[in-house]
Design a protein around this nucleic acid. Structure first.
Lengths: 188, 188
DNA sequence: GTCTATAAGCAGATAGAC
DNA sequence: GTCTATCTGCTTATAGAC
Protein backbone atom coordinates (compact mmCIF):
# COMPACT_ATOMS: atom_id res chain seq x y z
CA UNK A 1 0.00 0.00 0.00
CA UNK A 2 1.25 3.47 -0.80
CA UNK A 3 2.20 5.84 1.99
CA UNK A 4 -0.64 8.25 1.33
CA UNK A 5 -3.32 5.59 1.69
CA UNK A 6 -1.59 4.18 4.73
CA UNK A 7 -1.60 7.58 6.41
CA UNK A 8 -5.28 8.08 5.65
CA UNK A 9 -6.13 4.67 7.04
CA UNK A 10 -4.19 5.00 10.28
CA UNK A 11 -5.21 8.60 10.83
CA UNK A 12 -8.89 7.75 10.30
CA UNK A 13 -8.75 5.15 13.04
CA UNK A 14 -7.02 7.50 15.45
CA UNK A 15 -9.38 10.40 14.72
CA UNK A 16 -12.42 8.17 15.20
CA UNK A 17 -11.13 6.93 18.52
CA UNK A 18 -9.77 10.09 20.07
CA UNK A 19 -11.09 13.02 18.08
CA UNK A 20 -9.06 15.49 16.08
CA UNK A 21 -7.19 17.70 18.47
CA UNK A 22 -6.33 14.87 20.85
CA UNK A 23 -4.33 13.14 18.14
CA UNK A 24 -0.96 14.70 17.49
CA UNK A 25 0.69 14.68 14.09
CA UNK A 26 3.59 12.82 15.61
CA UNK A 27 1.25 10.08 16.84
CA UNK A 28 -0.08 9.52 13.34
CA UNK A 29 3.40 9.48 11.91
CA UNK A 30 4.52 6.96 14.49
CA UNK A 31 1.57 4.67 13.67
CA UNK A 32 2.57 4.76 10.00
CA UNK A 33 6.28 4.59 10.67
CA UNK A 34 7.00 7.57 8.46
CA UNK A 35 8.23 11.08 9.18
CA UNK A 36 7.03 14.62 8.71
CA UNK A 37 8.51 14.83 5.26
CA UNK A 38 6.04 12.29 3.92
CA UNK A 39 3.06 13.97 5.55
CA UNK A 40 3.76 17.43 4.21
CA UNK A 41 4.61 16.06 0.81
CA UNK A 42 1.19 14.39 0.41
CA UNK A 43 -0.80 16.95 2.41
CA UNK A 44 0.79 20.37 1.99
CA UNK A 45 -1.81 21.95 4.28
CA UNK A 46 -0.91 19.53 7.02
CA UNK A 47 -3.11 17.90 9.60
CA UNK A 48 -6.40 19.47 8.58
CA UNK A 49 -5.96 18.45 4.97
CA UNK A 50 -5.27 14.93 6.14
CA UNK A 51 -8.47 14.98 8.19
CA UNK A 52 -10.52 16.05 5.21
CA UNK A 53 -8.96 13.26 3.14
CA UNK A 54 -9.93 10.85 5.93
CA UNK A 55 -13.52 12.09 5.89
CA UNK A 56 -13.75 11.66 2.13
CA UNK A 57 -12.32 8.16 2.31
CA UNK A 58 -14.69 7.34 5.16
CA UNK A 59 -17.60 8.61 3.13
CA UNK A 60 -16.78 6.21 0.31
CA UNK A 61 -16.24 3.28 2.66
CA UNK A 62 -19.48 3.87 4.54
CA UNK A 63 -21.46 4.32 1.34
CA UNK A 64 -20.17 1.10 -0.17
CA UNK A 65 -20.70 -0.84 3.02
CA UNK A 66 -24.19 0.48 3.72
CA UNK A 67 -25.35 0.10 0.15
CA UNK A 68 -24.19 -3.48 0.20
CA UNK A 69 -26.07 -4.17 3.43
CA UNK A 70 -29.20 -2.41 2.17
CA UNK A 71 -29.09 -4.40 -1.04
CA UNK A 72 -28.87 -7.72 0.76
CA UNK A 73 -31.79 -7.11 3.08
CA UNK A 74 -35.34 -6.68 1.93
CA UNK A 75 -36.52 -4.10 4.47
CA UNK A 76 -34.98 -1.03 6.07
CA UNK A 77 -35.62 -2.60 9.43
CA UNK A 78 -33.68 -5.75 8.67
CA UNK A 79 -30.85 -3.85 7.05
CA UNK A 80 -30.56 -1.39 9.92
CA UNK A 81 -30.77 -4.18 12.44
CA UNK A 82 -27.92 -5.94 10.70
CA UNK A 83 -25.89 -2.74 10.60
CA UNK A 84 -26.44 -2.07 14.29
CA UNK A 85 -25.45 -5.62 15.20
CA UNK A 86 -22.26 -5.17 13.25
CA UNK A 87 -21.56 -1.92 15.04
CA UNK A 88 -22.26 -3.47 18.43
CA UNK A 89 -20.08 -6.45 17.59
CA UNK A 90 -17.18 -4.22 16.58
CA UNK A 91 -17.52 -2.21 19.75
CA UNK A 92 -17.57 -5.30 21.93
CA UNK A 93 -14.71 -7.20 20.33
CA UNK A 94 -12.33 -4.37 19.56
CA UNK A 95 -13.37 -2.36 22.58
CA UNK A 96 -13.15 0.75 20.52
CA UNK A 97 -15.21 2.61 17.99
CA UNK A 98 -14.65 1.86 14.38
CA UNK A 99 -16.96 1.91 11.47
CA UNK A 100 -19.63 4.44 10.80
CA UNK A 101 -18.97 7.00 13.45
CA UNK A 102 -17.14 10.25 13.33
CA UNK A 103 -19.27 12.23 15.75
CA UNK A 104 -16.22 13.22 17.77
CA UNK A 105 -14.85 14.99 14.77
CA UNK A 106 -18.10 16.70 13.94
CA UNK A 107 -18.74 18.06 17.40
CA UNK A 108 -15.20 19.16 17.80
CA UNK A 109 -14.57 20.75 14.45
CA UNK A 110 -17.89 21.83 12.93
CA UNK A 111 -17.83 25.16 14.71
CA UNK A 112 -14.12 25.68 14.19
CA UNK A 113 -13.31 24.76 10.58
CA UNK A 114 -15.63 25.37 7.67
CA UNK A 115 -14.04 22.87 5.21
CA UNK A 116 -14.24 20.13 7.82
CA UNK A 117 -17.85 21.03 8.57
CA UNK A 118 -18.71 20.65 4.89
CA UNK A 119 -17.00 17.29 4.63
CA UNK A 120 -18.93 16.02 7.66
CA UNK A 121 -22.16 17.39 6.28
CA UNK A 122 -21.65 15.62 3.00
CA UNK A 123 -21.06 12.37 4.87
CA UNK A 124 -24.28 12.66 6.86
CA UNK A 125 -26.23 13.56 3.74
CA UNK A 126 -25.01 10.39 2.08
CA UNK A 127 -26.07 8.23 4.98
CA UNK A 128 -29.51 9.78 5.09
CA UNK A 129 -29.92 9.32 1.36
CA UNK A 130 -29.30 5.60 1.71
CA UNK A 131 -32.00 5.29 4.36
CA UNK A 132 -34.31 7.56 2.39
CA UNK A 133 -34.01 5.61 -0.84
CA UNK A 134 -34.76 2.32 0.85
CA UNK A 135 -37.70 3.75 2.77
CA UNK A 136 -39.15 5.27 -0.38
CA UNK A 137 -39.15 1.88 -2.11
CA UNK A 138 -41.03 0.49 0.87
CA UNK A 139 -43.91 2.82 0.22
CA UNK A 140 -43.20 5.65 2.63
CA UNK A 141 -44.12 9.10 1.39
CA UNK A 142 -41.19 11.32 0.48
CA UNK A 143 -41.67 13.45 3.53
CA UNK A 144 -41.97 10.57 5.94
CA UNK A 145 -39.03 8.73 4.40
CA UNK A 146 -36.90 11.81 4.76
CA UNK A 147 -37.98 12.38 8.36
CA UNK A 148 -37.36 8.80 9.39
CA UNK A 149 -33.97 8.81 7.68
CA UNK A 150 -33.07 11.73 9.90
CA UNK A 151 -34.41 10.07 13.02
CA UNK A 152 -32.37 6.94 12.28
CA UNK A 153 -29.24 8.98 11.74
CA UNK A 154 -29.60 11.11 14.86
CA UNK A 155 -30.62 8.31 17.19
CA UNK A 156 -27.78 6.05 16.07
CA UNK A 157 -25.16 8.79 16.28
CA UNK A 158 -26.54 9.85 19.66
CA UNK A 159 -26.47 6.25 20.83
CA UNK A 160 -22.84 5.86 19.81
CA UNK A 161 -22.04 8.94 21.85
CA UNK A 162 -23.86 7.47 24.84
CA UNK A 163 -22.01 4.17 24.41
CA UNK A 164 -18.74 6.05 24.74
CA UNK A 165 -19.95 7.89 27.80
CA UNK A 166 -21.32 4.79 29.52
CA UNK A 167 -18.61 2.47 28.34
CA UNK A 168 -21.23 -0.02 27.29
CA UNK A 169 -23.10 -1.12 24.19
CA UNK A 170 -26.48 -0.90 25.90
CA UNK A 171 -27.62 2.32 24.17
CA UNK A 172 -27.08 0.86 20.70
CA UNK A 173 -28.87 -2.32 21.73
CA UNK A 174 -31.84 -0.33 22.94
CA UNK A 175 -32.01 1.58 19.68
CA UNK A 176 -31.93 -1.73 17.84
CA UNK A 177 -34.81 -2.93 19.98
CA UNK A 178 -36.79 0.22 19.27
CA UNK A 179 -36.36 0.06 15.49
CA UNK A 180 -39.99 -1.02 14.95
CA UNK A 181 -41.12 2.06 16.87
CA UNK A 182 -38.82 4.33 14.91
CA UNK A 183 -39.98 2.78 11.64
CA UNK A 184 -43.61 3.04 12.54
CA UNK A 185 -45.87 4.53 9.92
CA UNK A 186 -44.85 2.08 7.24
CA UNK A 187 -47.50 1.51 4.64
CA UNK A 188 -46.27 -1.71 3.12
CA UNK B 1 -20.83 37.49 41.24
CA UNK B 2 -17.67 35.90 42.59
CA UNK B 3 -14.78 35.15 40.28
CA UNK B 4 -15.10 31.39 40.56
CA UNK B 5 -18.74 31.38 39.41
CA UNK B 6 -17.94 33.85 36.67
CA UNK B 7 -15.20 31.62 35.34
CA UNK B 8 -17.49 28.58 35.38
CA UNK B 9 -20.20 30.49 33.55
CA UNK B 10 -17.97 31.89 30.82
CA UNK B 11 -16.00 28.68 30.38
CA UNK B 12 -19.21 26.63 30.07
CA UNK B 13 -20.38 28.80 27.20
CA UNK B 14 -17.05 28.58 25.41
CA UNK B 15 -16.76 24.81 25.91
CA UNK B 16 -20.30 24.27 24.61
CA UNK B 17 -19.61 26.32 21.54
CA UNK B 18 -16.14 25.19 20.59
CA UNK B 19 -15.39 22.03 22.51
CA UNK B 20 -12.67 21.58 25.10
CA UNK B 21 -9.34 21.53 23.32
CA UNK B 22 -10.28 24.33 20.96
CA UNK B 23 -10.70 26.73 23.84
CA UNK B 24 -7.44 27.94 25.32
CA UNK B 25 -7.07 28.86 28.96
CA UNK B 26 -6.09 32.35 27.88
CA UNK B 27 -9.35 32.71 25.97
CA UNK B 28 -11.38 31.87 29.06
CA UNK B 29 -9.32 34.25 31.16
CA UNK B 30 -9.83 37.03 28.66
CA UNK B 31 -13.61 36.47 28.63
CA UNK B 32 -13.64 36.81 32.41
CA UNK B 33 -11.12 39.62 32.50
CA UNK B 34 -8.99 37.87 35.07
CA UNK B 35 -5.52 36.36 34.95
CA UNK B 36 -3.91 32.98 35.49
CA UNK B 37 -3.47 33.59 39.20
CA UNK B 38 -7.22 33.50 39.75
CA UNK B 39 -7.71 30.36 37.71
CA UNK B 40 -5.06 28.29 39.44
CA UNK B 41 -6.15 29.56 42.83
CA UNK B 42 -9.72 28.30 42.36
CA UNK B 43 -8.86 25.26 40.23
CA UNK B 44 -5.44 23.94 41.27
CA UNK B 45 -5.62 21.19 38.65
CA UNK B 46 -6.15 23.73 35.93
CA UNK B 47 -8.27 23.53 32.85
CA UNK B 48 -9.60 20.01 33.30
CA UNK B 49 -10.76 20.75 36.84
CA UNK B 50 -12.55 23.80 35.51
CA UNK B 51 -14.26 21.69 32.86
CA UNK B 52 -15.51 19.23 35.46
CA UNK B 53 -16.84 22.12 37.53
CA UNK B 54 -18.62 23.36 34.41
CA UNK B 55 -20.20 19.95 33.81
CA UNK B 56 -21.44 19.79 37.41
CA UNK B 57 -22.88 23.27 37.20
CA UNK B 58 -24.49 22.42 33.87
CA UNK B 59 -26.00 19.30 35.37
CA UNK B 60 -27.70 21.35 38.08
CA UNK B 61 -28.92 23.98 35.65
CA UNK B 62 -30.33 21.44 33.22
CA UNK B 63 -32.00 19.48 35.98
CA UNK B 64 -33.70 22.54 37.43
CA UNK B 65 -34.79 23.78 34.03
CA UNK B 66 -36.11 20.46 32.76
CA UNK B 67 -37.87 19.60 35.99
CA UNK B 68 -39.60 22.96 35.85
CA UNK B 69 -40.72 22.38 32.26
CA UNK B 70 -41.88 18.84 33.01
CA UNK B 71 -43.84 20.07 36.00
CA UNK B 72 -45.65 22.70 34.00
CA UNK B 73 -46.75 20.40 31.19
CA UNK B 74 -49.10 17.51 31.64
CA UNK B 75 -47.54 15.07 29.13
CA UNK B 76 -44.03 14.12 28.16
CA UNK B 77 -44.87 15.05 24.62
CA UNK B 78 -45.93 18.60 25.48
CA UNK B 79 -43.00 19.11 27.80
CA UNK B 80 -40.48 17.82 25.27
CA UNK B 81 -42.07 19.85 22.52
CA UNK B 82 -41.73 22.96 24.66
CA UNK B 83 -38.12 22.11 25.43
CA UNK B 84 -37.26 21.57 21.79
CA UNK B 85 -38.91 24.84 20.79
CA UNK B 86 -36.83 26.61 23.38
CA UNK B 87 -33.68 24.96 22.06
CA UNK B 88 -34.58 25.87 18.47
CA UNK B 89 -35.36 29.42 19.48
CA UNK B 90 -32.01 29.80 21.25
CA UNK B 91 -30.19 28.42 18.28
CA UNK B 92 -31.97 30.76 15.87
CA UNK B 93 -31.69 33.96 17.86
CA UNK B 94 -28.23 33.57 19.34
CA UNK B 95 -26.90 31.68 16.35
CA UNK B 96 -24.96 29.47 18.66
CA UNK B 97 -25.58 26.50 20.86
CA UNK B 98 -26.47 27.13 24.43
CA UNK B 99 -28.60 25.20 26.82
CA UNK B 100 -28.72 21.47 27.13
CA UNK B 101 -25.94 20.37 24.89
CA UNK B 102 -22.43 19.34 25.65
CA UNK B 103 -21.98 16.66 23.04
CA UNK B 104 -18.80 18.28 21.76
CA UNK B 105 -17.24 17.74 25.13
CA UNK B 106 -18.43 14.17 25.43
CA UNK B 107 -17.19 13.07 22.04
CA UNK B 108 -13.92 14.82 22.49
CA UNK B 109 -13.06 13.86 26.03
CA UNK B 110 -14.88 10.64 26.91
CA UNK B 111 -12.14 8.46 25.48
CA UNK B 112 -9.35 10.66 26.79
CA UNK B 113 -10.17 11.59 30.37
CA UNK B 114 -11.92 9.27 32.81
CA UNK B 115 -13.08 11.93 35.32
CA UNK B 116 -14.62 13.95 32.49
CA UNK B 117 -16.31 10.85 31.12
CA UNK B 118 -17.89 10.19 34.49
CA UNK B 119 -19.15 13.75 34.80
CA UNK B 120 -20.73 13.53 31.34
CA UNK B 121 -22.26 10.19 32.13
CA UNK B 122 -23.82 11.51 35.29
CA UNK B 123 -25.33 14.37 33.30
CA UNK B 124 -26.93 12.07 30.73
CA UNK B 125 -28.26 9.80 33.46
CA UNK B 126 -29.99 12.77 35.05
CA UNK B 127 -31.64 13.78 31.82
CA UNK B 128 -32.87 10.28 31.15
CA UNK B 129 -34.22 10.00 34.67
CA UNK B 130 -36.36 13.08 34.14
CA UNK B 131 -37.88 11.62 30.97
CA UNK B 132 -38.25 8.23 32.62
CA UNK B 133 -40.07 9.55 35.67
CA UNK B 134 -42.56 11.48 33.59
CA UNK B 135 -43.17 8.57 31.23
CA UNK B 136 -43.73 6.20 34.15
CA UNK B 137 -46.46 8.44 35.55
CA UNK B 138 -48.12 8.35 32.14
CA UNK B 139 -48.56 4.61 32.39
CA UNK B 140 -45.59 3.34 30.43
CA UNK B 141 -44.04 0.16 31.74
CA UNK B 142 -40.68 0.58 33.42
CA UNK B 143 -38.87 -0.99 30.52
CA UNK B 144 -40.62 1.03 27.85
CA UNK B 145 -40.24 4.25 29.81
CA UNK B 146 -36.54 3.62 30.15
CA UNK B 147 -36.13 2.77 26.46
CA UNK B 148 -38.03 5.81 25.27
CA UNK B 149 -36.07 8.04 27.65
CA UNK B 150 -32.94 6.81 25.92
CA UNK B 151 -34.38 7.30 22.46
CA UNK B 152 -35.36 10.88 23.31
CA UNK B 153 -31.89 11.60 24.65
CA UNK B 154 -30.01 10.11 21.72
CA UNK B 155 -32.19 11.55 18.99
CA UNK B 156 -32.08 15.05 20.47
CA UNK B 157 -28.33 14.97 21.03
CA UNK B 158 -27.84 13.56 17.55
CA UNK B 159 -30.09 16.24 16.11
CA UNK B 160 -28.10 18.97 17.82
CA UNK B 161 -24.98 17.54 16.24
CA UNK B 162 -26.63 17.56 12.85
CA UNK B 163 -27.79 21.14 13.36
CA UNK B 164 -24.18 22.15 13.86
CA UNK B 165 -23.09 20.27 10.78
CA UNK B 166 -25.86 21.63 8.58
CA UNK B 167 -25.88 25.08 10.09
CA UNK B 168 -29.65 24.90 10.36
CA UNK B 169 -32.31 24.11 12.90
CA UNK B 170 -34.11 21.71 10.57
CA UNK B 171 -32.97 18.49 12.29
CA UNK B 172 -34.33 19.59 15.66
CA UNK B 173 -37.58 20.67 14.02
CA UNK B 174 -37.95 17.28 12.40
CA UNK B 175 -37.38 15.53 15.71
CA UNK B 176 -40.03 17.77 17.24
CA UNK B 177 -42.41 16.78 14.46
CA UNK B 178 -41.68 13.09 15.03
CA UNK B 179 -42.27 13.19 18.77
CA UNK B 180 -45.60 11.35 18.48
CA UNK B 181 -43.81 8.54 16.63
CA UNK B 182 -41.04 8.40 19.23
CA UNK B 183 -43.59 8.40 22.04
CA UNK B 184 -45.70 5.74 20.47
CA UNK B 185 -46.73 2.89 22.72
CA UNK B 186 -48.31 5.14 25.27
CA UNK B 187 -51.05 3.49 27.25
CA UNK B 188 -52.77 6.54 28.66
C1' DG C 1 -7.49 36.44 46.12
C1' DT C 2 -5.41 38.33 42.24
C1' DC C 3 -1.56 40.04 39.87
C1' DT C 4 3.02 39.70 36.65
C1' DA C 5 6.60 37.26 34.79
C1' DT C 6 8.42 33.21 33.42
C1' DA C 7 9.10 28.47 32.80
C1' DA C 8 8.95 24.11 30.27
C1' DG C 9 6.99 21.41 26.84
C1' DC C 10 4.76 20.32 22.77
C1' DA C 11 2.07 21.55 18.85
C1' DG C 12 2.21 22.04 13.81
C1' DA C 13 5.09 23.47 10.08
C1' DT C 14 9.45 24.28 7.18
C1' DA C 15 14.10 23.76 4.81
C1' DG C 16 17.14 21.33 2.67
C1' DA C 17 19.85 16.88 2.20
C1' DC C 18 19.48 12.52 -0.05
C1' DG D 1 9.23 10.57 -2.09
C1' DT D 2 11.17 10.37 2.30
C1' DC D 3 14.54 11.63 5.57
C1' DT D 4 16.69 14.77 9.60
C1' DA D 5 17.12 18.85 11.89
C1' DT D 6 15.28 22.98 13.12
C1' DC D 7 12.00 26.88 13.87
C1' DT D 8 8.23 29.45 15.62
C1' DG D 9 4.44 30.01 18.31
C1' DC D 10 1.34 28.58 21.52
C1' DT D 11 -0.11 25.67 25.31
C1' DT D 12 -0.65 24.79 30.24
C1' DA D 13 1.38 25.49 34.56
C1' DT D 14 4.34 27.68 38.28
C1' DA D 15 6.67 31.13 41.42
C1' DG D 16 6.54 34.82 43.89
C1' DA D 17 5.09 39.87 44.51
C1' DC D 18 1.24 42.53 46.22
Amino acid sequence: MDTKSLMIEKATLLFQQKGYKSVGVSEILKACDVTKGALYHHFPNGKEELLIACLKSLKEAITIDMEDIFKKHSSTQEATQFMLNKLIHNLETEGKLTGYTFSSIVSEMATVSEPVRQACNSLYENIQTIYYTKLATEGFSNELASDIALLLTTSIEGAIMLCQTQRSTAPLKTIAKLLPTILKGRTS
